[in-house]
């Protein structure tokens, strides 16, 4: 009985981290799962720096953000997900600063009792992060640094959740 109470107290935990440091996928999954036996589903997404973009080779990225607003906007996105789906724990990690090809950039993890809610909420959080959270990427491509333009396809993907 004590462990049940403990589970209840530990559930619905939200972790938001904006950091220059790398993260470890196994550690993050552990954090979502430990003392959380109510939830059978864990959906995670992780994003990495590609070696190419729009037909050009890429050697690295610089990530800038708006401290304070970033955390607030992620909290709001997670609240929207919690309102739409029956989910347990949520973790969102986004790295900032200088990143190289192959480096991890972003992690979204969601737990729920069943897979449908975990899958949907994970995808929703990622889609909204892409168009709502104040992060900007500056790309180093073939020796030239340039700020990336927002993609219409990301905006359209996020809008699909409203229909």
């Amino acid at each position: 009985m004590i462990s049940v109470n403990k589970n209840a107290a530990n559930n619905n935990t939200v972790k938001i981290a904006i950091q220059t440091a790398d993260f470890n996928l196994a550690d993050e999954v552990d954090l979502l799962e430990n003392n959380n036996d109510d939830d059978g589903a864990v959906a995670t997404f992780s994003g990495r720096v590609r070696n190419n973009n729009l037909g050009k080779s890429v050697s690295g990225l610089f990530l800038e953000h708006y401290p304070g607003m970033t955390e607030k906007s992620l909290e709001k996105i997670i609240e929207q997900a919690q309102a739409q789906w029956n989910i347990g724990r949520v973790t969102v990690i986004h790295r900032i600063g200088q990143l190289l090809v192959g480096d991890q950039i972003v992690f979204v993890g969601v737990t729920s009792k069943h897979r449908q809610d975990a899958f949907a909420a994970c995808e929703f959080i990622m889609d909204y992060l892409k168009v709502k959270a104040p992060f900007w990427k500056k790309e180093l491509s073939e020796g030239v640094e340039s700020w990336l333009d927002a993609r219409q396809s990301d905006e359209e993907k996020a809008q699909q959740w409203q229909s």
Partner: peptide, 10 residues
């Protein structure tokens, strides 16, 4: 008040 280009994180 903050001004910025459309966001490109993730």
């Amino acid at each position: 008040v903050a001004f910025f280009p459309p966001v490109t994180g993730g």
